[in-house]
Amino acid sequence: MTGTGTTVLAAQAHGFLSPTGVEVVFLLVGLVTLGAAVVTVTTKQLVHAALWLVVALGGLAVEYLLLTAEFIAWVQVLIYVGSVVVLLLFGLMLTKAPIGRSPDADSGNRWAALGVAVAAAAALVWVVADAFRTTWIGLDGDAPQGTTKVSGEILFRHWVLPFEALSVLLLAALVGAIVLSRKRGKEEKR
């Protein structure tokens, strides 16, 4: 109870018109991230979409760093920027995606999609801003929140079983991807 009380008091002490340095950096990086995401979903050049996705995901890694979740940020850089985007680029190459502008990158229902997205954005932003406008995150606490030490301790002390189940899931996904993409030579010969 006292914790929430102090949070509310702190939020009242911190107005929106006098942002801290972290908030300014967060806003600027957030604008870059959002812009890159919008370009990713609207550009006509398929390979450029994957490259703008790198910018968006890297911006999100910086946001994690600003939120003191250090380990998550580096995992984001390693897995998303390092492997997922490379996989997507390989997929684009293997499906013979056209280099250059492809006029049919968007389907015919893009205006309906735009309507749905704008309506969802308006509703979500309204609700979220109304619910959390006085909530303050104290980032400069005494206990570190997201260093590698803390993350490793909680992961291997409290979340061991889900972690191991996740490794089994990854193995299953790996085997499944191999089985799916293998050429079925034997069955065609028969």
């Binding site: 959002l34 995401a37 919008v38 979903v41 229902n109 893009r110 749905v116 969802a120 979500l124």
Partner: peptide, 14 residues
């Protein structure tokens, strides 16, 4: 960001 992704899922063809 979620709504940007939503637009992409609905509007993209590839």
């Amino acid at each position: 960001l979620f709504c940007t992704g939503l637009y992409g899922v609905l509007a993209r063809r590839n």
